[in-house]
Design a protein around this nucleic acid. Sequence first.
DNA 1: GCGTCCAGGTCTACC
DNA 2: GGTAGACCTGGACGC
Length: 300
Amino acid sequence: MEITITAPHGFSFKRTVISHGWYDLPPFEFDEKNWTLSRVIDTGEARPVTAKVSAAGRDLKVSLSRKIGKRAASKIERHVRHMFRLDDDMAAFYEVMAQDSDFEWIAKAGAGRLLRSPTVFEDLVKTISTTNCSWALTKKMIDGLIGSLGRRGSDGRRDFPTPEAMASMTERFYRDEIRAGYRAPYLKELAERVAEGSLDVETWLGSELPTSELKREMKRVKGVGDYAAENLLKLVGRYDVLALDSWVRSTFARIHNGGRASADKKIERYYSRFGEWRGLALWCDMTREWMDRDEQFTTW
DNA sequence: GCGTCCAGGTCTACC
DNA sequence: GGTAGACCTGGACGC
């Protein structure tokens, strides 16, 4: 079964897929050869379904692992639109970028849509799992969570675990099985708070709080510090934060400072001209070469 | 194979 | 508000 989803003008499937590391973390599965991104999606039915997303001209083609009903199909479309940020209005961002010769490539390339998970909860758990460790360890933790707790779909692949499933496990499980180390109590506590309803992280998506207050709220979650909160802010559509980590600092040093380490203040000054878009401008700047290496520097 | 060092953000205690 | 040290893992390195 297939669904076609209309993408906005200027949307780049490839740029969005590899906009950051999420495509490399399950339940996302990236097929580099055929340029497809698939993942298990919970439609609220007995079994989750696997959706394989690819570009079809300017639109998106979603191939499903089994036949589903109208309601489930509409849920899949909603999730795909959310993950690929198809409803984000990029016009204002592109207009600002077009004023600067070093950044005008962004609109032409259709960059700036950051891939995200179907839920803020999944993005939050993944973000905590990226902090203070190598990417290999992050993958190991997420692999472990999904392999142990993810609901199996019709084709045997697993979805990201629900807060309830994560809350039901012990701290020892996170420490010994997931290898989450000192993050173990944080993951357990987060899952419990979300499962019992005392913390609703999905509301961060439409929050009307100023960014600084929303960031403060995010940092009340154990394991979420400045970097994690700012990374998450970008995923919920706030770009007036930079989310500086070691990779961004070293990349900035290489690209803009002759290889010498830069003070955070200098990085902040460099992107301050982009105002509310500075975080997204920074990220596009840092990742520009991810696709320059290939031939795919066109919008489609 | 073993021990040591280091990188990677966040938390807590302290000033 | 700022800072130091602990937290924990895995990889790199030397022996």
